[in-house]
């Protein structure tokens, strides 16, 4: 028996979209090689290529690329700052 965990919500990439009626909209989502169908009823703007968080067969949120980068930019600046401090006596 494969454990289907209701808590696990994971990011996946929309490969294709089907269905015209907003509530019927569904998509094929690629989770690092495993492709599954999910309802896109709650992410009306999402298009193929977008990443979404999927939970129990529903995309709940579209991931924002710019926001996703922020932490890495921040950590990079911190790193540079501390290198700067170390190199100036």
């Amino acid at each position: 028996m494969t454990a289907i965990n209701m808590c696990l919500a994971i990011p996946g990439k929309i490969v294709s979209v089907s269905g015209k009626d907003p509530l019927e909209r569904a998509g094929k989502i690629d989770f690092g090689g495993v492709v599954k169908e999910a309802s896109l009823a709650y992410v009306p703007d999402a298009v193929p290529g977008d990443y979404v968080i999927v939970h129990v067969g529903f995309a709940l949120s579209r991931l924002d690329e710019d926001e996703a980068k922020k932490i890495f930019d921040y950590l990079k600046r911190m790193e540079e700052l501390s290198e700067l401090k170390e190199s100036t006596p």
């Binding site: 009823a41 709650y42 129990v56 529903f58």
Partner: peptide, 13 residues
């Protein structure tokens, strides 16, 4: 139908 606010949109639909 169990779960938190994360599963409720799915059961609602």
């Amino acid at each position: 139908g169990v779960g938190f606010e994360t599963t409720a949109p799915a059961t609602a639909l």
